[in-house]
Design a protein around this nucleic acid. Structure first.
Length: 787
DNA sequence: GTAGGGTTAG
């Protein structure tokens, strides 16, 4: 130790305690002045303590200045500086270089652990390189198997997802301590490898029988993310056994666990156990209330937080922002937004992402876009929120164009981006684009992600490639209930009821519990394949074997099964006997069935109920009018159309999409706008001629389903799907299949037309309409003429 | 040297 004079320990202790007590920079500066005054400025113990405190208060340049004035700093002081600069890793590195070059001191295990830790918090390729370099230095200096250095190394390797390197370091340490184990567990959790993290925790308990509250908090956060309540409760029991259950961090983790698993009562009790909750604990509880639809409690706790004088963080707001979404309260959401603006955290990327999401869910997509555009540092999550916002609002083209923009900026997508984009492809029926995304998935190694592969199955079925979907489904190692649902509803969409039933049975055998969506998908599949008995059996089993309480949509599905199969009276009886009040869905299904089977009397009955229940819905008026037309009751049909006109209820215009060489072409009724319009109409003439020779008669009196034109126009207008098919014939080679997508249900005339085309041109034509798929081949359709 | 809260998805 270097001292200008002998120091009485009493003096030093006096100043050490002054430094310790200092809470502000100005009080510390006063102490510093006194130290100089007492000629203690060369006492390394005192000065080291002072520097330590300055660094703690973020006064880095001042700390540096004092350091440079010390004649011969010892290793401890160098280490203090390296540790204190951990928010500025390159400053730490330059101190280390000075240590190596200007002194004869040898760095120890602390030097390396502090130095490496400084770079762990800075994700850049430079940090990664420096980490590897320092690992080399540490090994050469003989600290390759030191636990402290080891923990820092595991941490930095984990932060760059270099698992192999991290495991190698861990394996090289003969006696890992709790911190080292914790570092591995936390590193895996930070990389979202929650299962692996849990596995390592189990190993740790088995091998060492030791863990601490840090271990439990890390494990709990992972378990909460997985929503595995039972596992979480086991961890909680372990905590109780060793006495760290009441640790504040553990309790906060438990609050989050129970909230995420829907047990808000327990979460609340656990929160009450925290003696003096800090901001993070409050945030956890606020978010818990929000995601359990406890808007009142969430807002109440937020108010309390403000009253207590806490400075809210971005996490507080992210947990609060979705609070009014389930109630559709746009004005209240705007109030929270205004608060974020006032507190200056609106530009925090998490906050703006959360706001973007809520606005787009509230159908304020343009507002969401404005926020996105104004957000200064867009993270991948911001892009994902905007893209999925568009996809969920049906603005598929916008979703895709934003994705292309992202690609141009070289921002790499993650599985979330991919699932949103696949959802857009599925809605659009853009098989070409979907396949391109599939290639991208292979390139990015996202195939094993269950969200991604399920979305792929959904995309392939909705884009007409049911076989592709099935082979993907068969190769999947891990399947969850959503995966099974996607496959079942895919088969339903294609009218392949038996396959849907087989997959459903397989699902039950594999031990996955069906949800409401599963039953809906399987009932839908039965309906579109005319499987009445199977449908009835499943409906009964849903109630009796699975204890599931059917919702309105399940009853409607059953009405659809009976009605579609022509059992109209049974369907009506089913409606009258159901235990809940029949709504628009049930009566609508009956009306649809009446139309297929041309029963005007029952249709009148169903419509009366529908006009009462849902007077604004134009679809029912159109359906009823069609039934009158079908039965040659033109005056009633016309008067009903007048009602529609009077109510000014706009109909959705029909349009059809066809993809040629990866580019979508959209046609509307009697469309003349396409550059190749002339050739298209010529082609249409040509096939019409051939078809008339083959016995085709246009169905002009029965424009069934969602018709697109007034009676007068009926003879003149050409439906969009005919134009798309003609275009498809022009643009493809002999024998190639043609795929089109229509936004409404196919009308009877177009259905007949397509059957004829498939025969005379020897083409497979796949049509996706608003309800299902039609595979036309050799003059027949897979729907068996019921759709 | 390790720790608890928030955002995006089928």
């Amino acid at each position: 130790m270097i001292c200008s004079r002998a120091i009485a320990p009493k003096d030093r202790n006096f100043f050490l305690s002054l430094i310790n007590q200092a809470t502000t920079l100005s009080s510390l500066n006063q102490t510093h002045a006194q130290i100089i005054h007492h000629n203690l400025f060369n006492d390394q113990i005192t000065i080291t303590k002072l520097i330590q405190k300055l660094l703690h208060l973020n006064a880095t340049s001042q700390a540096k200045l004092i350091f440079t004035k010390i004649d011969e700093p010892d290793l401890f002081l160098y280490n203090v500086l390296i540790k204190g600069f951990r928010k500025r890793p390159f400053d730490s590195l330059s101190v280390y270089n000075t240590l190596l070059q200007k002194t004869s001191l040898k760095p120890d295990n602390f030097t390396y652990s502090f130095l490496i830790a400084a770079f762990s918090g800075f994700p850049s390729s430079m940090s990664e390189k420096v980490g590897i370099l320092l690992h080399g230095h540490a090994v050469v200096s003989g600290f390759g198997a030191d636990v402290f250095v080891g923990s820092a190394l595991v941490d930095i390797y984990m932060s760059f997802s270099r698992f192999t390197n991290a495991y190698k370091v861990f394996d090289g340490i003969t006696e890992p301590d709790t911190v080292l184990w914790n570092t591995v567990i936390s590193g895996l959790a930070k990389n979202c490898c929650f299962d692996k993290s849990l596995l390592v925790f189990r190993n740790m308990v088995k091998r060492t029988r030791q863990f601490d509250s840090t271990t439990l908090s890390v494990v709990l956060s992972g378990v909460a993310e997985l929503q595995e309540l039972r596992t979480g409760m086991m961890v909680q029991a372990l905590g109780l056994k060793v006495g760290c259950h009441f640790n504040e961090h553990v309790l906060t983790g438990l609050v989050s666990l129970y909230s995420k698993c829907g047990d808000i009562l327990t979460a609340r009790c656990l929160f009450e156990l925290i003696v003096k909750p800090d901001l993070i604990a409050y945030n956890s509880m606020i978010s818990g209330f929000t995601c359990n639809n406890e808007a009142g409690l969430s807002v109440q706790l937020f108010r309390k937080l403000l009253l207590l004088g806490y400075k809210v963080s971005s996490s507080t707001m992210v947990g609060l922002i979705p609070v009014f979404y389930p109630f559709g309260h746009l004005d209240l959401t705007r109030a929270i937004h205004a608060f974020c603006v006032k507190s200056g955290i609106v530009f925090n990327s998490s906050v703006s992402t959360a706001l973007t999401t809520v606005y787009s869910r509230l159908n304020e997509i343009e507002f969401a876009r404005k926020l996105f555009d104004e957000s200064p540092d867009k993270t991948l999550e911001s892009w994902n929120a905007m893209i999925s916002g568009y996809a969920q609002n049906g603005q598929t083209e916008m979703a895709i164009s934003l994705f292309r923009e992202m690609q141009k900026l070289d921002i790499r997508p993650n599985p979330v981006t991919i699932t949103s984009i696949l959802s857009a492809c599925a809605q659009l029926g853009a098989l070409g684009l979907g396949k391109w995304v599939h290639d991208l998935i292979k390139k990015e190694c996202f195939e094993s992600n269950i969200y991604v592969s399920t979305a792929l199955i959904d995309m392939y079925t909705k884009c007409g490639s049911i076989e592709e979907a099935r082979s993907l489904f068969d190769t999947m190692q891990e399947k969850n209930v959503v995966t099974w649902n996607a496959m079942i509803s895919g088969y339903g969409l294609h009218g392949r009821g038996h396959e849907a039933l087989m997959v459903f049975d397989e699902m039950l055998l594999s031990g996955v519990s069906p949800t409401g969506v599963t039953f809906l998908s399987i009932l839908y599949a039965c309906s579109h394949a005319g499987l009445v008995e199977e449908g009835e059996r499943i409906f009964r089993s849903m109630v009796d074997d699975h204890g599931f309480k059917p919702k309105s949509e399940h009853y409607a599905s059953m009405v659809d099964i009976l009605g579609r199969a022509g059992k109209l009276e049974n369907a009506l009886e089913f409606i009258t006997r159901m235990p809940i009040d029949p709504g628009p869905a049930e009566w609508g299904a009956l009306l649809g069935a009446c139309m297929i089977h041309k029963n005007a009397n029952l249709a009148r009955l169903a419509s009366d109920r529908l006009f009462e229940l849902d007077p604004e819905n134009v679809g029912y008026h159109v359906l009823l009018s069609n039934i009158y037309s079908t039965n040659q009751n033109y005056s009633q049909a016309a008067s009903l159309r007048q009602v529609v006109k009077k109510k000014n209820l706009a109909k959705t215009p029909g349009c059809t999409l066809i993809e040629v060489k990866g580019h979508p072409h959209v046609f509307t009724s009697s469309d003349q706008s396409h550059p190749q319009a002339k050739a298209i109409y010529a082609m249409l003439e040509k096939i019409m001629g051939r078809m008339k020779d083959a016995g085709y008669l246009a169905e002009t009196d029965t424009a069934l389903h969602d018709v697109e034109e007034e009676e007068k126009e009926l003879m003149v207008k050409v439906h969009s799907e005919k134009l798309a098919i003609a275009f498809g014939l022009i643009m493809s080679k002999e024998g190639e299949e043609i795929r089109i997508i229509k936004n409404l249900r196919v009308c009877l005339d177009c259905h007949n037309f397509t059957k004829f085309v498939s025969r005379i041109t020897e083409r497979v034509i796949i049509v996706r309409d608003a309800n299902r798929f039609h595979h036309f081949e050799n003059g027949a359709c897979s729907c068996g003429d019921y759709w």
